[in-house]
Write a protein that binds this DNA or RNA. Structure first.
Lengths: 215, 215, 215, 215
DNA sequence: TATGAATGAGTGTTCATTCAT
DNA sequence: AATGAATGAACACTCATTCAT
């Protein structure tokens, strides 16, 4: 027991240290990828900014592609968590759709780097390159889970159309915010939360209604 | 006279040949950029596919960046032309918004490579790289012209909100189609034209109404 | 006879035209080689400046190396001509050495481009490259002829030591002027003709005296 | 203690290794630049001859231009050191001028590759190219320091004329030796040290005398 | 374990030269 | 004869990845 405890404690110190390095690399990579682009940010840029040796990078990530994938998983995971939390917190006054939109908009406004990273990642998914399939799988999982969140709100829509609603939510939100970031800059965009909520609300609610069973 | 004619013909033969080479490089680049990605498609890939010497590329385009920009200009120009044509052809039964959406959807369904190229180009615009500014200028011009097309349909909206409507049109259309291409592939997507039209219609018309003066 | 005359006249018109193009290419090349360097001035730079098609260049010169060699021959030839003229014109008050130095200094001050071209050409002569041998032959001929001009002035020096004097003349003159051009620029240098003459005079005359038979 | 020592030793092993690689690249580059020419010797030539990967070169030198500059600095530095040493060692029998000439001649006879490299470098200084300014600065510093060494020997010459003497020393020495290397080859030249000393002595001493205050 | 020196395949780009018109 | 479009070998330089320490 004593041994175990010590081992656990000692291990956990090492573990904590490793976790911190891992975290630092991810954070730095996220920032650099969104600033300089996935392609133009080099592994050396990342390790230098993270104040780590270049070889260290490869102790934590198998390749540059791997950290992109890891970031995508992390970002989408966080986005999902925020969305689920929002749905749980929603007072009855807020519809499912509103809650989801609000969660996504707030997430992206808080993490513009993820917004831009996701955009680039989607751009890579189409490619006939090894990494593309991996990324598509990750993103597809996200859409599947978003579909599940949307489903209950649709009175009789089949899963097919729930998927469509989920896709529209994801597409519109990312699309609208990305356009505004690109053409108006990161600064101004944060002040326009209300505009985005209203606009997306107006755009997406009719879709949900259309796919439900109301006549 | 004969000489002149021959000279004229011979000149135009060379000119025609050059125009064909130029066209061929653009076509091949467009295809490769959307298949392998702007980054992963090399100049040599392009010239090899176009069956040209590598040096030839640089007689026609100043750099790899230059051909990206040229493709963006060409694609956006064609999209604009199609949109304007659609607005002119619109019978009174079709609203401005419907016509624009239809034109954009049809353009992208016809040219999925442009859809994917534009997505990648937008991804580059954010970057702190030389080429980014150029691309942003080109794209910004497109949004400005789209704004002008939208403006007349808005009863009393200021130009600010027309720009917002234009942005939403561009963002939603590209966003929705891209998501569907990525997750359902190019084949299936073309059969779903009606779905896209209906969905985008439903999403965008309320925005236009909101910004007009009706109560 | 009539035919012959016509042919001669017509030929000579063509010949004159060709000679002019040849001349133009040489002039432009000389200027560009000294401005941008033999290496950095491209054939296209030359033909463009000479307002000729690129292919035309190869009608007049076998290669880029060939025009360098031609320029070296031309420049050294002109320098020789000037030197011989100076020796012929020399009133009895001027020694052989003074006349030669004056001719060389004046030639180079008039043709700084040749000064810089010769310097570059000498730099190439050492190289284990094809063109090097050619250039060395041309330059060596120049030194041989300069030796012959110096020889008579040396009372009993063998040809070996006349060659040494010739070499010293060429070396000092080019060396001194080149250094001054490089570190003081082309403008100021022309005003300093007297300084160069005096300095070189002082440096070279004792050599000539040393190699003569006086005791 | 043991650890510390080991760590220190191991660090210095790496450092030593790096220093050796750096040295090796410089040596190889110096040889190749003088054999094949600055232009014709490629980075790959250098790394191959140095038995290093191509990328290694760029860990040690920012660019090809940078190694040229480094070699120029190294060579001129060594030449200066030798000159200063010679002045310190000079027994009263040897004049300043003689000591300087002897040091320079010996340096160049020992390092013909530097002689030829410097010649090429001077050839580049005139050019309207980026690297030219850098090289000129380095070389100019050399002339300035040579001027300071010459100055004390000149009784009342202003610094202007000391610079002229320094320039003449550098110009004559390099000029004369280069000509002899080019036309007689490297082998024969080394046997002629006395001739060069005598000749340069004879050429340069009167200049020094002329610029001093004696009548 | 962490490091960073070393690597070399791969990139965009240039340019002397050729050749069809 | 004159042209300039086409070429492709070559170059400087980059960067993801490996591996000895």
């Amino acid at each position: 027991m004593d041994d175990e405890a010590k081992s656990k404690a000692s291990l956990s110190r090492v573990e904590r240290r490793k976790a911190r390095t891992n975290r630092r690399l991810l954070e730095v990579a996220r920032r650099l990828f969104s600033e300089k682009g996935i392609y133009w940010a080099t592994v050396e840029d990342i390790t230098e900014s993270a104040d780590q040796g270049k070889g260290t990078f490869y102790k934590y990530f198998e390749s540059k592609d791997a950290i992109i994938r890891a970031l995508l998983e992390e970002g989408l995971g966080e986005l999902e968590a925020k969305t689920e939390q929002a749905l749980r917190d929603a007072d009855s006054g807020l519809t499912t759709m509103s809650s989801i939109i609000e969660a996504r908009v707030d997430f992206f406004l808080d993490h513009l780097d993820f917004l831009l990273l996701f955009h680039q990642a989607r751009g890579m998914m189409q490619l006939q390159v090894e990494v593309a399939k991996d990324l598509r799988d990750v993103y597809d999982g996200h859409l599947r889970r978003l579909t599940q969140l949307v489903e209950p709100a649709m009175e009789m829509g089949g899963s097919g159309s729930a998927r469509e609603v989920a896709t529209a939510i994801a597409a519109y939100t990312s699309g609208l915010l990305t356009y505004h970031v690109l053409f108006e800059g990161a600064e101004g965009i944060r002040r326009r939360r209300d505009y985005f909520l209203r606009t997306l609300q107006g755009s997406l609610s009719p879709i949900l209604e259309n796919s439900d069973g109301s006549h």
